[in-house]
Design a protein around this nucleic acid. Structure first.
Length: 268
DNA sequence: CGCTAGTCCTGTCTGC
DNA sequence: TGCAGACAGGACTAGC
């Protein structure tokens, strides 16, 4: 579930734990750890230097070059609790106890998410696509990756090896804003359309961050609080409702296996 | 290369 | 009220 704006929001809300040290790690479900470059007990006593984000991954950087990467999958949450508060929630798989009175818990109902105990981030992210909010993600870059591609434009922008961080909600919203049908052949976009789409992607992601992410059901930030961008969505989840631009009805179609929401009249 | 369908999971909602 | 089926913010794989 969490896409770039949600992971960015979680990251920002966890910053208060910078400088805290790890008292212990607790692993309730060992198979939630996808890669073990080191054993989890090894990071006891290390200090959190920073929280970062790459695509949909949240990164916890520790002293001595130890890192923890977290991916929320569809239903994952990463949030703080007071250390003395008993965990009664279901589906808690991993807990980091900190020396500032807090613990950070990873909870994931569907377990599509995971945790990577890493030492070499460069290798881990070698194939990741560009960050859409960085300056080097631009119309020329978008044109270069859509060139001669017959794949649906929506499927292409969901490919994390090309652009990292866009998920189903923000893909639909960006394509609506750019007035491009999600099932258009990527290579058929004009330069002007590519410019519109690159700008629309940045705009919806920035708005998503500004509104602290989109909570449909599961998403919560690092304080276990809901986002607000669900109140600003134009098409996602709006099947049968009026298009905010032309008043025709928003439809849903399956594109690349993903449920896709758009206006047939506004989006060409 | 790219498409579809299947897989990993649990929970919620809809229709009969 | 029960139950089957569809569907869900993701990502990877096999097979064609």
């Amino acid at each position: 579930m969490p896409e770039l704006p949600e992971v960015e929001t979680i990251k920002r809300s966890l910053q208060t734990n910078k400088g805290a040290s790890i008292i212990k790690t607790e692993i309730i479900r060992p198979d939630i750890i996808r890669i073990r470059d080191y054993e989890p007990e090894f990071i006891q006593g290390l200090t959190i230097i920073d929280f970062k984000r790459r695509g949909k991954y949240l990164l916890i950087e520790l002293t001595e070059d130890y890192k923890i990467a977290v991916h929320m999958g569809m239903s994952g949450r990463l949030y703080m609790m007071e250390n003395e508060t008993e965990i009664i929630e279901k589906h808690v798989h991993f807990v980091l106890y900190l020396d500032n009175g807090k613990k950070v818990i990873f909870q994931d109902t569907r377990r599509f998410g995971g945790i990577w105990l890493l030492r070499d981030l460069d290798m881990f992210f070698a194939k990741m696509g560009k960050e859409p909010l960085n300056r080097d993600f631009s119309a020329p870059y978008l044109l270069s990756i859509i060139k001669n591609r017959r794949i649906a434009i929506k499927t292409l922008i969901l490919n994390q090896n090309l652009i990292s961080g866009i998920g189903n909600i923000y893909a639909d919203e960006a394509l609506f804003l750019a007035r491009i049908r999600p099932d258009r052949e990527a290579g058929s976009l004009s330069e002007e359309e590519a410019l519109r789409l690159s700008r629309a992607i940045k705009k919806v992601l920035r708005e998503g961050i500004k509104n602290r992410g989109t909570t449909f059901r599961d998403y919560r930030d690092g304080n276990n609080e809901r986002g607000g961008f669900q109140d600003h969505l134009q098409v996602y989840g709006k099947i049968g409702e009026k298009c905010p631009v032309c008043g025709n009805l928003i439809i849903r179609n399956r594109i690349g296996g993903r449920s896709s929401h758009y206006c047939e009249f506004c989006q060409k």
